[in-house]
Write a protein that binds this DNA or RNA. Sequence first.
DNA 1: GTGAAAGCGCTAACAC
DNA 2: GTGTTAGCGCTTTCAC
Lengths: 354, 354
Amino acid sequence: MTRKSSTGVSATRSTIRDVAARAGVSASTVSRVLGGDYPVSAATRTSVMRAVRELDYVADARAKAVAGVGTPTLAFVLDDITGPSFALMAHGVEREATRLGHLSLVCSTDGDTAHELEFVEMMRAQRAAAVILVGGTADTPEYRTRTARIADSLASVGSRLVLCGRPPLNPGTPVTVIEYDNEGGAYALCAHVLAQGHQRLLFLGGRPDHTTAQGRERGYTAAHRARGLEPDPALRLHGDFTRDSGHRLMRQALSQGLEFTAVMAATDMVAAGALTALHEAGLSVPGDVSLAGYDDIPFARDLHPALTTVHVPYEELGRLAVRTALGRTPDDPDEHLLLGTHVVVRNSVATLSS
Amino acid sequence: MTRKSSTGVSATRSTIRDVAARAGVSASTVSRVLGGDYPVSAATRTSVMRAVRELDYVADARAKAVAGVGTPTLAFVLDDITGPSFALMAHGVEREATRLGHLSLVCSTDGDTAHELEFVEMMRAQRAAAVILVGGTADTPEYRTRTARIADSLASVGSRLVLCGRPPLNPGTPVTVIEYDNEGGAYALCAHVLAQGHQRLLFLGGRPDHTTAQGRERGYTAAHRARGLEPDPALRLHGDFTRDSGHRLMRQALSQGLEFTAVMAATDMVAAGALTALHEAGLSVPGDVSLAGYDDIPFARDLHPALTTVHVPYEELGRLAVRTALGRTPDDPDEHLLLGTHVVVRNSVATLSS
DNA sequence: GTGAAAGCGCTAACAC
DNA sequence: GTGTTAGCGCTTTCAC
């Protein structure tokens, strides 16, 4: 098998005109045979295809786009691709996008709002079909106006904003929002833990103003109240959604001498860090203290003990985001979907014999 | 703060000509003030900028690209973004790309060669500055010709192929390859385990024809021989790099009654699955059996016991890939970089007292 | 069935 | 300084 590079074909990109010249036809004809659906004589088609092959020609996608026949692009903006749940969503987005023949870009903002804006502007310039903003954030007035502005500016170039697990905007804003049930999942999980006889549940939360964290915390509170219990405020610790935060918070709780028989972490990552801190303190889980997470990331099974947690259909969420964003006409009503979650019982929560 | 969408500005994308008309100047003038570096009268600049703001105008990036002044694009192709080590690399790529003002696309192929080819063709059409192919694979003649062809075709449109942790091609192929040391890391790790007095090391490998897996297995073998030991062939089990594979292989080893005091997993994911299987069998790690992994994914610390493993600088690898791919002129010699790895000792390997 | 010409949205060389 | 023109690589009328 000889290498193409040795056939003497110029290393400079060839254009449709080069192909036309080599095949002895006009550029329009080349365009037509490549386009597919257009009557072209068999002989012409053959020689054009030969020229295409010889030159290893591919039409410039950007030029096609300008001419009005591009491959639509779709952007996925998240905090950090390194977070397992985000990676899962990215996977879903990516798969669905390619299935639909779209290109998909991802961008990590590392939580930087300026960076996020910058990227959105880039996508607007690319005339992306949709941009998907992912993950909870602080739901401030500033957030709402900023994001509404993004939605409008995207709409003005025929693009569409999708909010995924992010606080919704005021009605009337051209945006699609897809959420998953944080409060309900946390409620169910907490109810499960309480049903095992636990009374003092340590909550290892995220940033207090973070909507995802808030939803989960609300579920924790509501489940207590449903049993006529009022959670002890001292039992809520706040940090972020990382493994390190869980580790730090857990050590802190232990050193403070807080009393609790179970801990509910805002995410599985937090739970992982907490678990390690517990182990380091010589405590057994769930023998001495029970532990639960949230997200059901793949690794949750391999923690020891296997983590009881709430399953969130992240990959499905990603797929859904692109489907609803793409499969809509400009006048469709703005959608707001809420995906369900469910608790997965494994081995990290013990029944209190008392 | 009133919403822009209510100002009556048309919802259809505005062009540079619309801006020009509104500002009462020519399109070129608009282009010039937007371009920045060109003398324009202050008054003109002001009115143009006002028009830009009023229309919320952004130049079409595709058109700019056709005109020869686009934002370069860069593609990152991997098996599965869901794998923690890949996600780490993707993160590095993404960060470095945006730092350099490039757009970066990612694509998961799910190990499907046809899909990979398709995507490369797409990137060629996009006139991507570089495409980075990531992760080990079977190093067959078919692989070499196929990949060499990709390298050539990319080169023919002025793009560049980068192989990252993937088998290198024959010399003369226009490709940049960046590898990390699989054999060396595995050798060091295995030597460490042997030095703790272990003699029978179970190796939980990947696919036998997978270059990454092979490298690690070679290190395992070499470390034995350096001590005058010959590893028992019965002690090598092959699967893939997933958590499930590790779990399954470990159960299999246990049920077969294989004798060993330590296990070396080809990846941390495999180790995680193996660890769970060990626990399920009522075995203590490292009390009854020692365990080591490879990759040093963030989660390795939260396994219990914390996993002794080999650190691979994945994020750095990603950054390096884009830097070398982008920072080169067409006539630079083809590069071949090899990044070092080092073992991270944690708590999963015990010293044999015997 | 095929070619010439106009146009997509932009930039750049060339006037004035 | 600013407008006019040509051109990037492609598609798509509109003729023949």
